[in-house]
Design a protein around this nucleic acid. Sequence first.
DNA 1: CCTCTTATTTATCATTTGATAACTAAACAA
DNA 2: TTGTTTAGTTATCAAATGATAAATAAGAGG
Lengths: 142, 142
Amino acid sequence: MDKQALFYKLVSFTSSVHRVTHELTKNAKSDSISQVQYNMLEYIAVSQPVTPSDISDCQGMAMPNTSRELRKLSEKNLIEKIHHPEDRRKQTIRLSKDGEALMNEAFSTIESRFLDRIQHASEADLEEIDQAIETLQKKLFY
Amino acid sequence: MDKQALFYKLVSFTSSVHRVTHELTKNAKSDSISQVQYNMLEYIAVSQPVTPSDISDCQGMAMPNTSRELRKLSEKNLIEKIHHPEDRRKQTIRLSKDGEALMNEAFSTIESRFLDRIQHASEADLEEIDQAIETLQKKLFY
DNA sequence: CCTCTTATTTATCATTTGATAACTAAACAA
DNA sequence: TTGTTTAGTTATCAAATGATAAATAAGAGG
């Protein structure tokens, strides 16, 4: 297998993934939050409970900026900060009811666009897509 | 096939793709250009020749902002603007020599990180990855 | 020619994002 | 106790990004 050819295929593929993700998600998020705030909420939604440090690491943001954006999200009542009982320096971040609602709304918009996109796919196509995702997730995007 | 389950798989998958892409590309770009400028150059590199409108559409930026960033790239001698001979409103954007060099450098950094990532993959794994990319590109991320 | 549309630019502004230094408070270790 | 490390905050600043209005300039269709 020509690894360099595979690399170019990957570049083109990731660019497609980014483009399609953008099409599926554009305007799906509420106007009341910024893109970075949405990314944080998505990460929290999928991985909660998390700490500010987790968010900082995974989203590649500096702690002071993470802290500032968490404060804004908290002021908008989208997340809750809970002090860790054993180590009171640490915090646990969770979506609030409002935060859950906001993310559910966004996800359902994105999901319906996704369903549009695969509406012409046959059952066999869907199986193939499912398998391909599984393979790449395991062997390349781990 | 449960389409909702497939959707959740997709969400998790795209998030992995974004994370890994970020790992592969972080600090690969020259410090002399911004992230948006890098994205534009990458798109130009892969799709050239393109017009400012193409860039605007594909990168989801408003035309005035595209125009501004193209001017900056042009001032840095990374791209060339050529007026279309038939319709002189239109322009053709290409990477300049310097632009090619800058992108080749970035790509080679990214490629070597990619090779690291797949160094333990067997020949069969690579074939599988290749096939999976092909499938998804054709059936989902078109 | 005149009007309309298309492609791009210029100018301006608000907001977001990223970076850094200095700080608080709690745990931890000697 | 004292000094050190860890987790997070506050304040501040510069730069990047995004949005909008208004202009230019060339093609297209009557």
